[in-house]
């Protein structure tokens, strides 16, 4: 007898599968039986093709954003051309389908709709940590300024006015640099 599956090799195994009231008999060759066995084993493992991915899940969240119903009719036209990203042409609809974002500009285009989502994924929508030197130059200075301003307060509180004056000079220099940078860009 030939294998039910590949119809090439001789069948050497008899498998009976019972699903509720259905009973299926199969005669398989060794190779197909091994594959069948793997298939059964993998049903409960992560090796099987993912049933749904993170992106599918995200696209679900995109679709059911509770803010949508309230904000969309009020301050935005219905989703469509107007929501296309000027840089890569991605629309909000594309997101809701793929769960993936098209380019860096998209984050700006869809900022208002993404921020609530980010808070739901990460519990926050404000980045702290590493900053690229070029793109984040002004931000670097701003973070440093914030730090120095805190420092100056502690020096004033502890009446170390000389140190406070030094920090103040530092702040002035940075502020000048910041103004220059902003003027350029």
């Amino acid at each position: 007898m030939l294998c039910d599956n590949c119809k090439k090799n001789d069948a050497c195994m008899h498998i009976t599968q019972i699903n509720g009231n259905n009973k299926i008999d199969r005669y398989l060759c060794e190779e197909c039986a091994a594959k069948y066995g793997d298939f059964i084993m993998q049903e409960h493992s992560e090796n099987q093709p993912e049933i749904f991915s993170v992106n599918d899940f995200l696209s679900g969240i995109f679709n059911n954003s509770p803010n949508d119903q309230q904000t969309t009719p009020a301050n935005a036209p219905p989703a469509g051309e107007e929501y296309a990203c000027p840089s890569c042409g991605m629309t909000y609809m594309d997101f809701t389908r793929s769960g993936k974002i098209g380019c860096g500009t998209c984050y700006n285009t869809f900022r208002n709709r993404l921020e609530p989502l980010l808070r739901r994924i990460h519990g926050s929508s404000k980045h702290t940590g590493k900053i690229p030197h070029r793109a984040g130059k002004t931000l670097n200075i701003q973070q440093e300024l914030a730090l120095l301003r805190k420092q100056i307060e502690t020096y004033v509180d502890s009446e170390e006015y000389e140190k406070a004056a030094q920090v103040r000079d530092c702040i002035r220099r940075l502020e000048k640099e910041l103004n220059l940078n902003e003027g350029r860009s």
Binding site: N55, K100, G104, Y107, I121, H122, P132, H133, A135
Partner: peptide, 27 residues
């Protein structure tokens, strides 16, 4: 650092490093 010295990296002051999947955003 070697890469970002030569090229601009997608970055937003608030959202950090921008990534294709929002679950990797920030750092």
């Amino acid at each position: 650092n070697c890469i970002e010295e030569e090229y601009d990296i997608a970055f937003d002051d608030n959202m950090g490093y921008l990534t294709a999947c929002p679950t990797n955003l920030g750092t």
